[in-house]
Amino acid sequence: MSAIALTLGPVFFHWSPDRLSDFYRRIADEAPIDRVHVGEVVCGKRMPFSDPVWPEIIERLERAGKEVVLSTLAAPATVRERRSIEDLCGDERLVEINDVTALPSRSGKPFVTGPFLNVYNEASARFLIQRGATTICPPVELSLAAVGAMAGACREAEFEIFAFGRLPLALSGRCYHARIHGLHKDSCQFTCEKDPDGLAVDTLDDQQFLAINGVQTLSNQVQAFCPAPADLTSRGVRRIRLSPHTCDMIEVSRTYRALVDEAEDPKAARFILSCLDLPGTLVDGYAHAKPGWQATASI
């Protein structure tokens, strides 16, 4: 058993029920991942599509020995969205909180704080740990040193670093997929489903820059932070989060498993990841306290 566990974060994109079912079936059967997050976090309007398939997906994952975490919405607004959070918080499984809205109904029971919840320092972390936080995945803009400093000060919780996938950078009340198609959020026609990894946003000079996913803005580049395991364990960081994309996530998870088990070194792991069909180039700036788009390590 490695000292570092692997987490598969929630799918940020509007995948069809069939795609979700197929994806998690493979994760259950083939991915060397310890913990799997399920549920919609970006847009409550998508929930009626995916809600029917979650029970079967959860059962399948649990039968395969995965720990399932129920992720909750990052920017709830409507009565229905708020009720969904309250319902999920009543579950006996671990729940991921991505907005303070969920805190009152989950306080006193174990939870994960996701990267949408602002935990920037040891005092905030401690406050949340006292209310039930057992795993803390801080905002993506924090460096490994900052996450490690929190982990060092709060040994009673597990700290997790966002290692793979397009970086979740912003949320809005406005839906950009709707806007780009001349529509409004309230009558959006779910055009985001056409972009299962998000829609690339380039600058006027064709620099790859960002990606949109409904109300969410992500990086165009793909975070591929491949630390030596000792860099994590020495700081008390005990979990790595991989964020789902349409590329071969089994291969991604195997690569990270090999990395944390020291079967591959960081350079080899980055090389394997770079060979996959990724939506953007590899970056890891945030982990090194640099601008997020920068790649500090060469392949």
Binding site: N118, V140, A170, L171, G173, S219, G285, A289
Partner: peptide, 15 residues
């Protein structure tokens, strides 16, 4: 335009 306090666009580009 982004939800304030939850936007990392600036650090992504500039640190």
């Amino acid at each position: 335009v982004m939800i304030e306090g939850r936007c990392y666009l600036s650090s992504y580009a500039t640190g």
